[in-house]
């Protein structure tokens, strides 16, 4: 029982990271209806931005919690700028071309970032410094939460609430929702679609940046190809939750994290990914548009 609870905590923490990444996929899909496959590599850049900034930031803020917060904010800022630049240079010129062209371009951007990263940062993995002291909060007799896991869950919750409020209550949010319903109609109503799309990429990439730092803190290392696997898993989480849906992305991420940890700690650990993805296929067979996806029929 204790072990089960411990695995649930591990799963929630891993799932929270997937959720943060999945939100970026879903936001971009909601607006532009294409999958930005470079998203996982933006996460990697976020982790590296954090890695190189740690010594400097640590010099300014000696307190570990403030350092961590500053590193997170810095990485989010770097990724936000990167996201906007990628959209402006690679995706906007193809805005009115077939969706497939943009999709292939995003795979190209992904390869550019990861293999460019190998040249820039070196191929070997680097140790990510322990930003937080090794604290463990006990829950009951043998269930504990590490500082890192607490941080992941707290930051994710904070960002999710902030994102929800932004989408529901701000003019940007309104424009984003309008754009995701019908881009042409929104443009006719005076929504500056280029600005909104840039901002969408900025917000989505900033979330990936935060996820990058949190992920690196949990796995203790970074390398230029680190974004690929979480990127794919988060993409699956987004599809599972219903791509284009924000709550769907969050729930999909948590579900995937939980499944992985509960299976990973069992006797079936060799088949972990196979079973996790098998469950996903089953869910999609029953609900093709995902858990939270709108299943409205195409109007003819």
């Amino acid at each position: 029982m204790h072990e089960f609870l411990q695995q649930v905590i591990n799963g929630l923490s891993l799932g929270a990271i997937y959720a943060l990444i999945a939100l970026g996929y879903s936001m971009v899909y909601g607006v532009l209806k294409f999958i930005n496959f470079a998203h996982g590599d933006v996460l990697m850049i976020g982790a590296f931005a954090g890695f190189y900034a740690v010594p400097m930031i640590h010099g300014i803020f000696p307190d570990p919690w403030t350092t961590t917060a500053a590193v997170l904010i810095w990485s989010m800022a770097v990724c936000a700028v990167l996201g906007v630049v990628i959209e402006r240079l690679a995706y906007r010129p193809l805005r009115n071309q077939p969706k497939l062209a943009v999709l292939i371009t995003s795979i190209g951007v992904s390869l550019l970032l990861s293999y460019g990263g190998q040249i820039l940062f070196g191929v070997n993995q680097k140790a990510f410094p322990d930003l937080l002291p090794p604290i463990r909060v006990s829950l009951g007799s043998s269930v504990t939460i590490s500082g890192n896991h607490l941080l992941v869950m707290a930051v994710t919750l904070l960002l999710l609430v902030a994102l929800r409020e932004t989408i529901q209550r701000t003019r940007f949010g309104l424009a984003l929702r309008a754009l995701s319903q019908n881009r042409d109609a929104a443009a006719l109503m005076g929504v500056n679609s280029n600005a909104v799309i840039s901002l969408t990429f900025a917000v989505g990439s900033a979330l990936a940046g935060a996820a990058g730092v949190l992920y690196a803190m949990n796995i203790h290392s970074i390398e230029p190809l680190m974004g690929t696997l979480p990127g794919i898993k988060a993409f699956v989480a987004a599809v599972l939750g219903g791509i284009g849906s924000m709550p769907g992305a969050a729930v999909g991420g948590l579900l995937l994290g939980l499944t992985e940890c509960l299976l990973g700690g069992s006797d079936l650990s060799s088949y972990r990914d196979a079973i996790a993805f098998g469950i996903l296929i089953l869910i999609l067979l029953v609900r093709p548009s995902g858990l939270f996806g709108s299943s409205a029929a195409e109007k003819v």
Partner: peptide, 21 residues
């Protein structure tokens, strides 16, 4: 205890929690 993972995995907390038990 026997646990397994797949090369390229980064998060091992699930398997290690089981090992620790």
């Amino acid at each position: 205890g026997q646990q397994s993972y797949s090369g390229g995995d980064k998060d091992f907390s699930a398997q290690l929690t089981a090992v620790k038990a």
